[in-house]
Design a protein around this nucleic acid. Sequence first.
DNA 1: CGGGTGAGCGATAACGCTCACCCGGTGCCTTATT
Length: 480
Amino acid sequence: MIELYETLKKRFGYEKFRPGQKEVIQHILSGKDTIAILPTGMGKSLCYQLPGYLLEGSVVIVSPLVSLMEDQAAQMRKNGEKSVIALNSFLSFQERKIALQNLGQYKFIFVSPEMLLQERVANKLRSMKLSIIVVDEAHCVSQWGFDFRPDYLRIGKLIDFDGRPPILSLTATAQSQVIEEISDYLHMDNPVVERHSLDRQNISYCIIQLNTYDEKYDWIKERVTATTGPGIIYASSRKRADELSTELQSIGVAVQAYHAGKENEDRAIIQEQFINGEIEWICATNAFGMGIHKGDIRQVIHEHMPSNMNAYVQEVGRAGRDGKPAAATLLYVPRDEDMTRFIVQNDLPAEEQIMHYAYLLSEGVNDDEAADRASLGETAKRVLDFYMEQFSIDKVLHIVDRLAKQKDSEVHEMVQLITGQRCIRESLMSYFDEKLDSKREYCCSVCGLPNAVWLSSNQRLVERHSKRARSWDERILSLL
DNA sequence: CGGGTGAGCGATAACGCTCACCCGGTGCCTTATT
């Protein structure tokens, strides 16, 4: 125990642990597989860095985004840790070769699931002395594994070898089903679940029903000029994010759009500018947000609903990490969910496509050509390949069908949250199997939010708010 | 849903109109080299 605090002081300069950290570290040090669900901004990386220093061998960190692992590696280097490498496609062939040969010399090794699954990388890691295998943002197993990045579902098989080190899964949100999936697909051995309340008391939730998309635009324009950021506006398509950003720029707002259609370099610059405060607002698709360290985000506005509650909580949770009041507003127009449904179902292959693809493969057609002839998109092909590797065609059809139904019911849950009469915070908490012990003062639009007061401890916001927002708030309240 | 596109229509012909249809999010890795 003394050693823990000494290392904390010496390596990180802290006197105390944040809630949850010490427990997670102790589980890992005693060799137990651990799933840690800690709210964002609670210092999750310390949970593997500290035990990494106390244990012999290398720490492998599986990370979903190259940019995220680069950030984390850079941060660690800045703090004086030289023995860290991010093994990814940023490295040239030559660099990768050298890195792989000398991998055992590194204390901290970041990899993507795809990289981890390359045989050469896997073999090398298995031959090394490893202290911890960390899966960062572990909800990606559930969120992406089944229909987008199936390699997330293959990790478990790979890291399940004799004498493997403990596995640590880190995430900010996970309902019980997701916890089970993480445990199963990572082949975790009876993991300890270290869970902290996900209730973000400083966030006020507001859901507003409007009639048309134009009303949404007007509302956002008004809101952005009358109140303060920094803030994120989540839109449902790249196009809409671009349009909204252009519109807001035209009325003098410091705003940029962010989505996967932009060059990586531009995305990095925009993110940097937002973090430094040069840009006040970001209009983004769901591409924006993971691994963003910015404490003073005051607002998250959803121009369109996300596709499930988990995504909603993740996105909303980016507001108010500094603990000061923050507002989460979701704008809803009846039948918004039609588009959401379309998006989440779009990549799933249809029954005919699956049959066609399987038939062509059985005829000996090369897989790329077969996918092409069966009109399978790249994502659909990769996902299908994963299921066909291990199941009969009947089973595959069944799995895909079940997946579609599940996604549908997730959208339905979102609609119920939006249109229901139940306290929003309470609904979210019960979704994550938590109970609210007491009511917050400025809870949500169902419980009632008084005029502008709900953001009053943010001085700047109130100053700007008081000029124009009064009538606007009244209008919102009347809509509620 | 909302926005965009392209076909079909009328019938002096050209072009403007309607209508049916399609599309819409997330990221690793890109092998022919260790």
